[in-house]
Design a protein around this nucleic acid. Structure first.
Ligand SMILES: [Zn+2]
Ligand SMILES: [Zn+2]
Ligand SMILES: [Zn+2]
Ligand SMILES: [Zn+2]
Lengths: 189, 189
DNA sequence: CCCTGAAGTGTTATATTATATCGTTTTTGT
DNA sequence: ACAAAAACGATATAATATAACACTTCAGGG
C-alpha cells in the first residue's frame, strides 16, 4: 500500500483532548495544534449551511450529519467508518449508497476532499473557493493537513501545459511525518 | 469519481497502429507520439532484467510477464485486466494474489508506478533512479505520461518542510486532456 | 549431490471500497 | 392540491485488494 502502517479501519474522534485555543496566525488550519476542535466543526457546519444556501443547494440533515462526522477528525475518514458511526449513534442501519451519495454531494460542493492514497475523506478549510488542495498526510498518525498555497499547483500545471497537456484537475498528496510524530523517530534504543 | 468517464474496464494494446519512429528529442517518453511501442516494451524488459540482476533481485517469468503486460499500454492498466490477460493468453487461471504480488515486487523495484486516481498501474520510464513521478492523465483516452522533472516536487516538499512536515513520498497526478484529445473538444456541432 | 531454509507461487476465502437499480418519500414550484 | 424533481431506503452486486496456508522452486552450505 501507499502508506506503511495500514490500520484495519480509519478512526476519528481520537484527539478531543485539550481545549486550549492557540492562534496560529498564518496557517490555513490547525491540524497540528491541539485546539478546541468542536468549535472548528461548528464553524465548518455554519459556513457550509451558508454556502449551500447561497448556491441554492440543499444541505439536508443527512448530508450535514455526514459532513459533521467527516469534520470530527483531522484524519481522513473512510466511507464505511462514517457508515458505522451513523448506524451506531442513531440506530439507523444506513446502507453504503446513503453515505456515498452524501459524500458525492459534499465533494461537488467542495465541502470535503477525497484523499486518494487513503480512500478516505476530509473536511475542507476553504470551501468558499474552488481550489486544488495539497495534502500532507502523516504516515504514523494519519493526521492530514491541507495547504492552500496554489503557486506550486500553478507551476505544475504550467509544466504540463509546456508539454501540450491541458490540465483541468490536480491531485497532490505528500506522505511523511507530521511535526508531532517526528520525535518518535529518534526514540529507537 | 475522479475522472469523468469511467469505463467499465481499463484496456491495453489499443494503439499498436503505426510503427513510424519519431524522435522527440527532449521528452522522457513518447506517450503522445505514435511510435513502435513494441520496441519500447523490449527495451523496458531488457533494462528491468539488467537492473534486477544488479540489485540481486529475481525478475521471475511471472513478474516479467506482468511487467510486459503493464508496459504494453501507455494507459494505466488495472490489476484485474492483467489477470484476465494472463488467464487468456496462457490458459492459466491466475488468481488475484498472483498478480498483486508481482505488482508489489515491480512497485518496490520502481519498475512500475501506481496511479491512485485510477487504481491502475503503468510502466516507469526511468526505473534506474528512485524518483517521484508527475503523471498527466488524459480524461478522455486515459493515456498517461510521466514527467520526471522533479523541481516542482522539490518545491512542494520545500513548502511542506516550511510547515514542519517531513515529507518522504509525494503523489502528483494531473488530469486533463492530452494533445491528441484536445481537438475533440472543438468538434461539438 | 543432498539437505535446508528462504523466497516464490497456487489456491481458497475474505476484506475493503464503491456502484447499479428500483421503489418510496420528501421537497419544490405552480 | 398537483406534478415533477430531488433525495432517500433498501437490496444486490461490482471492483479492488489482502489474509492464510499449502506446495514448489531455488540458492547456498555441507
Ligand atoms: Zn480544500
Ligand atoms: Zn503524525
Ligand atoms: Zn517513473
Ligand atoms: Zn487523450
Amino acid at each position: 500500500m501507499t502508506l506503511s502502517t495500514k490500520a484495519s479501519s480509519l478512526k476519528a474522534r481520537d484527539h478531543e483532548d485539550s481545549s486550549g485555543s492557540q492562534a496560529s496566525s498564518d496557517l490555513a488550519n490547525q491540524a497540528y495544534t491541539s485546539h478546541d476542535h468542536s468549535s472548528c466543526v461548528s464553524k465548518a457546519l455554519e459556513q457550509a449551511t451558508e454556502l449551500c444556501q447561497q448556491r441554492g443547494q440543499r444541505l439536508t440533515a443527512l448530508r450535514k450529519q455526514v459532513l459533521e462526522l467527516v469534520w470530527d477528525s483531522h484524519k481522513p475518514i473512510g466511507a464505511y467508518d462514517i457508515l458505522a458511526m451513523m448506524s451506531k449513534d442513531q440506530d439507523r442501519p444506513a446502507a453504503p449508497p446513503t453515505v456515498y451519495r452524501a459524500l458525492d454531494f459534499l465533494l461537488e460542493q467542495s465541502l470535503i476532499h477525497r484523499i486518494a492514497s487513503l480512500n478516505a475523506y476530509i473536511g475542507c478549510h476553504c470551501p468558499d473557493s474552488t481550489h486544488e488542495g495539497i495534502f500532507l498526510i502523516c504516515e504514523k498518525c494519519r493526521t492530514t493537513r491541507e495547504l492552500t498555497g496554489s503557486e506550486e499547483i500553478s507551476l505544475l500545471k504550467q509544466q504540463a501545459a509546456n508539454t501540450g497537456f491541458q490540465a483541468t484537475h490536480s491531485l497532490v498528496e505528500i506522505s511523511g511525518l507530521c511535526p508531532a510524530c517526528q520525535p518518535a523517530c529518534h526514540e529507537g534504543a
